[in-house]
């Protein structure tokens, strides 16, 4: 591989973990710098492309599908019914079909009611997660994790240098992280810009929010929180609150100490 090819390949995939590329980069600090530049550029791109998703979109999709599925199941039942009708009586009358349709509709009410109740539940959840003023810090953290749930599926590594480039904007520095960072984003926490990152641990992906404590975005509520999938801990510091969210059952305390021990504030 020569430098030209190296640059082409990194430009095509800045977060590539290809062994050949990594080893080639290690031979020269300039090459490593090129990787860092391209990774930082990619984060800028990702942030620029991250347009807001309309509130309640998932809810509307499910409602739309439920409505269509309802109509379609009515039509299918009518069609299925047709051959039986013809065998029972000679030529099927349109009138009969009309009666069929109305009796089918009665039967279809149960699933319709079920779909409606699911929608109400989904709506209630979405609504509650949007009232972002008075509810507790733990819920806020969990809602944010669910909002960007795809962040837990990323696998490409982001270098510590790139993390620190972003973190420096908030006036902080990380000496290390307990695992490979796979997601990095500036996010809004009740009006406060904070860092949202995900790293890989032995217990699956873990989310860390580092949010300056100025606005008290995580001011109210218990330090420990959980639901049926995740658990988390809030470390309230003088400069910032650090929130760690992991899968249920992970040794939170251990990771919490390591992360908080690695944060330094540059002021």
């Amino acid at each position: 591989m020569d430098d030209l090819e190296f640059r082409r390949r990194i430009s095509a995939q800045p977060n590539s973990t290809d062994k050949e590329l990594v080893e080639f980069a290690e031979q020269h600090s300039e090459r490593q710098e090129f990787i860092n530049d391209m990774q930082a550029f990619d984060l800028d791109l990702a942030n620029a492309l991250d347009v807001p998703v309309p509130a309640g979109l998932a809810e509307r999709i499910l409602a739309n599908t439920a409505a269509h599925a309802q109509n379609e199941s009515l039509t299918t039942e009518q069609v299925n019914q047709a051959p039986a009708d013809t065998s029972a009586q000679t030529p099927p009358q349109q009138k009969d079909n009309l009666i069929e349709a109305s009796t089918r509709f009665k039967r279809a009410r149960l699933p319709l009611a079920m779909a409606a109740s699911v929608l109400v539940a989904v709506g209630a959840f979405l609504f509650s997660s949007e009232q972002n003023v008075a509810y507790a810090a733990g819920e806020h953290a969990l809602a944010h994790v669910y909002y960007e749930i795809n962040s837990l599926q990323k696998t490409e590594a982001i270098s510590l240098a790139t993390v620190n480039e972003k973190f420096a904007v908030l006036g902080g520095h990380l000496d290390e992280l307990p695992g490979k960072v796979t997601y990095l984003m500036f996010c809004d926490f009740k009006g406060q810009k904070g860092l949202h990152l995900v790293f890989e641990s032995d217990y699956g992906p873990m989310t860390v929010f580092i949010v300056p404590s100025k606005q008290q975005s995580f001011g109210i509520g218990d330090n420990d929180f959980q639901d049926d999938r995740f658990e988390g801990h809030i470390n309230r510091g003088a400069d910032a609150d650090t929130i760690l969210v992991a899968s249920l059952g992970a040794p939170l305390e251990n990771y919490n100490d390591r992360i908080n021990g690695a944060i330094r504030w540059l002021n």
Binding site: P54, L57, I61
Partner: peptide, 30 residues
């Protein structure tokens, strides 16, 4: 729907650059 709607919306948005068309595309896709 829950896992992919946000990403698909963003992708659709950048294909058509119109929030309404993007939402229609995502609805039709699902």
């Amino acid at each position: 729907v829950h896992i992919y709607h946000s990403e698909l919306y963003r992708f659709a948005y950048w294909l058509c650059r119109d929030p309404n068309i993007a939402e229609d595309l995502v609805q039709e896709t699902f």
